[in-house]
Simulated assay, not measured.
Amino acid sequence: MRGIPLSEPASSGPPDPEELRLDEVMRQVACGDKEAFAALYDAVADTVFGIVLKVVRDRAQSEEVTQEVMIDLWRRAPRYDPSKGSVHAWATMIAHRRAVDRVRSAEATATRDHDHAVREVQRPYDDVAERVETRLQSQQVRRCMKTLTEIQRQAVTLAYYQGLTYREVAETLCTPLPTIKTRMRDGLIRLRDCMGVTA
């Protein structure tokens, strides 16, 4: 049997007294009436939960989504328009939308976690070569650091190996900030030249 579309009110027969009551309840909710919201909750929460559970298929998550839907109904109550459908139809639409969003979000998270796990497991075949190359680069950096002046070496070490800002480096070395900036710049240029890095 075909039902009446959720977005359209019934075109025949007397208005449903329950829906008329809920229209009034929704008007009161729109004015911030907490008792009216409690009545709205009692009237639609079970329906909302049933719809959400069919989509989400996890009871705990469905309970969370149901709470989100009820909060949505509270916040959006001033926008409710009875001419566009009943309170139940409106709550149903919001519940379905929220449930679909939750499923999509869960799927996106699962995909992201899977991709991360795959990247972690599938290490490059030349992992040993990478480690050797990294060690050689470290040795080259240490050798090039020895070509710097004492203050350049201290400034670069504090900034790049200990994560200090230029201002913190200046305070640590009791040296004016402009001097530190100049020494850092000159030190990095020297390091770049020593390591054969081209711009």
Rank of each mutant, 00 (worst) to 15 (best):
R2F: 03
R2K: 08
R2C: 01
G3E: 14
I4V: 13
P5A: 07
S7G: 11
E8S: 12
A10T: 11
S12E: 12
S12T: 14
G13C: 07
G13R: 09
G13M: 10
P15C: 06
D16L: 04
E19I: 00
E19V: 00
R21S: 09
L22E: 05
D23H: 14
E24D: 12
A30R: 03
A30V: 08
D33W: 05
D33S: 08
A36V: 05
A38R: 15
A38K: 15
L40C: 04
L40A: 04
Y41M: 00
D42H: 14
D42P: 00
A43E: 04
V44L: 04
F49H: 13
L53S: 12
V55N: 03
V56P: 05
R57T: 03
R57G: 01
R57N: 09
R59P: 01
S62R: 07
S62Q: 06
E64Y: 05
E64K: 06
E64T: 10
V65T: 07
T66C: 13
Q67C: 06
D72N: 08
L73F: 05
L73H: 02
L73M: 14
R75A: 07
R79D: 12
R79Y: 01
P82K: 06
P82V: 09
P82G: 10
K84S: 09
K84M: 11
G85E: 02
V87N: 02
W90D: 06
W90Y: 13
W90T: 03
A91Y: 04
T92D: 04
I94W: 02
A95C: 08
R98V: 01
A99H: 05
A99G: 07
A99Q: 08
R102L: 03
R102Q: 15
V103W: 08
V103Y: 08
R104W: 05
R104H: 15
A106R: 15
E107F: 05
A108K: 12
A108S: 13
A110L: 14
T111K: 14
D113K: 07
D115G: 08
H116F: 10
H116D: 11
A117G: 02
V118F: 06
R119H: 11
Q122Y: 07
Q122C: 08
R123H: 04
R123W: 01
R123K: 14
D126P: 00
V128N: 00
E130V: 09
E130I: 08
R131L: 15
L136P: 01
L136F: 08
Q137W: 09
S138E: 13
Q140M: 12
Q140H: 07
V141K: 02
C144Q: 10
M145Q: 01
M145R: 00
K146Q: 14
T147G: 10
Q152E: 15
Q152Y: 01
R153Y: 01
T157D: 11
T157E: 12
A159S: 11
Y160W: 07
Q162S: 09
Q162W: 06
G163D: 12
L164H: 08
L164W: 01
T165F: 09
T165R: 10
Y166T: 13
Y166Q: 13
E168Q: 15
L173A: 05
T175E: 12
P178S: 10
I180C: 09
I180W: 07
K181C: 09
K181W: 02
K181I: 13
T182I: 14
M184W: 10
D186G: 00
I189A: 05
R190C: 03
D193A: 14
G196V: 11
T198W: 13
A199N: 13
